[in-house]
């Protein structure tokens, strides 16, 4: 018998007046997976997360958490769910530790992590007695994560958890997410940081104007992404640029640096042809780096206005994951 999905939404829909914020969205997250949610601002990511956390009622569709239907006011169904949406908010007149104490009490369970433990996990243990009103954005972000980690949740919903964090703390958060996943906790993560999503997510869903336009794992991502582009630095950029144009692999890009003039795009064979042509002309390649990561390329191609009507490429991932 297959294990229950941590989260499953079926035809989930939310409207705000005329605006369809989430449109018949299907989503499935298996236990232990880290699922990335991508979309432009206003795509419906946060609305989706608010519905999962019970802050909003769907207008249509259903949410199941660990095989149990989760209606809007059903806190019992969400007993194994934690997380936050948008910037985490706390009571500024209380210390970070006191905030966590009160929130832990509202969980009403004996197996909550202590505030000290939670603060230590996000590297706030030395600042826990300070009032939250004095916290920086990054500290509040980490406190939000600590609040989510207070109870032993099995689905953690995180809305841009590394926004406002310095690189070291962002790394700590990403490591935490990985650790949660390795212990069977499912994580639903939204972020605008493509490299972060690519680094830590097993699967990715791209939402555009409330609808899912793509979903897949890393391998499917690489397969679905448009041909990658590369920035090339050579011993003779002018001649190399002419060759690229002749081979129709040149991409017109604005000049970004005085030492860089060429961006090429094509499949593996086209790129090989360009490199060999450079070699025949005696032009050395001094540096070559990806111009746009595959996920970003895919995201841009799916969510740019001209592609708004493009249908989702895979429509029934629920069964796929459940199997």
């Amino acid at each position: 018998m297959p294990e229950d999905l941590a989260l499953e939404t079926r035809a989930l829909t939310k409207r705000f007046g005329e605006l369809i914020a989430v449109n018949a969205l299907d989503l499935a997250i298996a236990p232990g997976s880290v699922h990335g949610l991508l979309g432009r601002n206003g795509a419906g990511k946060t609305t989706l997360m608010r519905m999962i956390l019970g802050l909003l009622s769907p207008d249509a569709g259903a949410i199941e958490l660990f095989g149990r239907s989760a209606t809007p006011g059903d806190v019992d169904a969400r007993a194994r769910v934690a997380g936050f949406v948008e910037e985490p908010r706390f009571y500024p007149y209380l210390s970070g530790r006191r905030n966590l104490e009160l929130l832990a009490r509202l969980d009403g369970r004996a197996d909550t992590r202590s505030p000290e433990e939670a603060l230590e996990l996000v590297d706030l243990d030395s600042r826990g007695r300070e009032k939250v009103g004095n916290f920086s954005t990054g500290m509040r972000q980490r406190l939000g994560l600590a609040a989510a980690l207070l109870r032993p949740a099995e689905l953690v919903v995180l809305d841009e958890p590394t926004i406002g964090l310095d690189p070291a703390n962002a790394r700590t958060v990403r490591t935490l997410i990985g650790a949660l996943s390795s212990r069977g906790v499912a994580v639903l993560l939204s972020s605008h940081n493509m490299s972060e999503i690519a680094e830590i997510c097993d699967r990715v869903t791209i939402i555009h104007e409330g609808s899912r336009v793509w979903e897949g794992d890393q391998a499917e991502l690489l397969a679905a992404a448009p041909a990658p582009s590369y920035r090339v630095w050579t011993s003779d950029d002018d001649q190399a640029s002419a060759i690229a144009r002749r081979l129709e692999v040149a991409v017109e890009t604005p000049r970004r640096a005085a030492t860089h003039t060429i961006t090429v795009q094509g499949d593996e064979g086209e790129r090989d042809g360009f490199v060999l042509a450079l070699a025949q002309e005696g032009i050395a390649i001094r540096r070559l780096e990806p111009d746009v990561p595959p996920l970003e390329a895919l995201f841009t191609s799916l969510t740019s206005p001209r592609d708004a009507d493009q249908p989702a490429q895979n429509t029934d991932t629920t069964e796929e994951i459940a199997a």
Binding site: V75, G108, L121, L149, A153, A168, R171, T172, L180, R183
Partner: peptide, 23 residues
């Protein structure tokens, strides 16, 4: 605290049988 420490200290969820919804 380093990222490595964070990884080490995240506790595993308890066995499902022991979990009960509570308010």
């Amino acid at each position: 605290m380093s990222a490595v420490t964070a990884t080490q200290t995240v506790a595993a969820p308890e066995p499902r049988a022991a979990r009960t919804a509570s308010r």
